[in-house]
Design a protein around this nucleic acid. Sequence first.
DNA 1: GCCAACGTTGGC
DNA 2: GCCAACGTTGGC
Length: 165
Amino acid sequence: MAENCRYWLMKSEPGCFSIDDLKDCPDGISPWDGVRNYQARNLLRDEIKAGDGVLFYHSNIREPAIVGVARVVRAGYPDHTARDPQSEHFDPRSTDAAPIWYMVDVQYVAHLVRPLTRDDLRQHPRLMDMAVLKRGNRLSVQPVSEEQWRDVLRFGGMSELPDKI
DNA sequence: GCCAACGTTGGC
DNA sequence: GCCAACGTTGGC
């Protein structure tokens, strides 16, 4: 399904890691670590490539919203936090020889001029069936179609965004 | 804070 | 391999 997908939506709880936290990283680059769901893991490991676009979504807050844009700068590689006993994402089953969990590196690009709340997204016929709006959806990394990507940027006030993402 | 939906675990 | 119990996610 995700074959040839170039665009993704990634969820993060802003109290844990917000788009501003990403922006404040050196060069705006951070590993997207700590994903512990096999479906999302498969996307991180197999599908998501450097150069892909990312919609940054703030979840689990009063007004969840797509708040900005990032790009993938490094494709999937083993998530080292799974090997760190001090990490809350430590998984003793994962080894260097046979890593279980993967991550990608993402780089901050821009905040949306206007963040798009769930209500905002539902206003638009082509966005109302985004996976993130589906009831019970828990996938923290999910594919986004090119049409959805373009619409999110446009409705978010980003029409002038460089297309070299 | 509530709770529905979902993914994972583990007994059998 | 089934499935009930449990833990987590995440909107509301």
